[in-house]
């Protein structure tokens, strides 16, 4: 059996109280294994974003338990969670992932600075991942000088560079045209295969889903199917 990165047991999440209460997740059991390349799919409002937020500790569960790399996220303080994410989880959002006042290089460097990685190693890793995402030579540009697809690639480089246990990406291709989106996903897949990096991402796009090795389908906060291709 492969090793488990994220184990979620009986996770429910609701927003609001009483009449207006929304059940975004209902009794979700989901284990993510090392090396997974999993897509979370489902109609709008089915709870994809909520699930990803909960898996990385950005949001708290209403009930149930989440363990990431063997540690339970429920009882961590905001600052503990921040440090935990810094070390163990890479995040990529739909768009505007980058800090606009920092250059591409500085954006990628940022988390390593928080981690106190020595300067030589920092530079080396930045260079390596800039090359990996095909942006060598663009390190001194500012995010606005890059296309949307390039920005997303920098975001993935930033997530990869701190050697996390898993990268979670909420609709990383939603703001890109489908061709660029597919290229981005192929790159993620390459990292998944080359570096055994675990990815979980959500998407609406059938072309993107096709490329996943595992597909988890959510409807109304339930997992209705979980297939490995």
């Amino acid at each position: 059996m492969s090793e488990i990165v994220i184990a979620s047991k009986n996770v429910s999440k609701h927003f609001g109280e009483g009449e207006a209460q929304v059940h975004a997740l209902r009794e979700v059991d989901l284990d993510i294994n090392i090396g997974d390349f999993a897509a979370i799919v489902g109609p709008s409002g089915s709870g994809k974003t909520t699930l990803l937020n909960i898996l990385c500790g950005l949001d708290k569960v209403s009930s149930g338990d989440i363990q990431v790399s063997g540690r339970s996220l429920q009882d961590m303080s905001g600052s503990e969670l921040a440090k935990f994410r810094r070390e163990h989880i890479g995040l990529v959002f739909q768009a505007y992932n980058l800090i606009p006042v920092l250059t591409v290089m500085e954006n990628i460097e940022y988390v390593m600075l928080l981690q106190n990685v020595p300067v030589a190693e920092r530079k080396e890793r930045v260079e390596k991942f800039l090359t990996e995402v095909g942006l060598e030579g663009k390190g001194n540009r500012f995010p606005v000088e890059l296309s949307g697809g390039q920005q997303q690639r920098v975001a993935i480089a930033r997530a990869m560079v701190s050697h996390p246990d898993i990268i979670l990406a909420d609709e990383p291709t939603a703001n890109l045209d489908s061709e660029t989106g597919v290229l981005l996903l192929d790159m993620m897949r390459k990292f998944n295969e080359e570096f055994q990096m675990t990815f979980v991402f959500s998407t609406h796009d059938p072309q993107i889903m096709e490329r996943a090795k595992r597909m988890v389908t959510l409807t109304d906060g339930h997992i209705v199917s979980d297939e490995i291709k």
Binding site: G78, S79, A82, L91, N97, L98, I99, P100
Partner: peptide
């Protein structure tokens, strides 16, 4: 605000 959300999400502690 959104940017600060990103900054906090990727591991900057509240205090930082």
């Amino acid at each position: 605000m959104f940017e600060f959300g990103i900054i906090k999400s990727i591991g900057t502690t509240p205090w930082q």
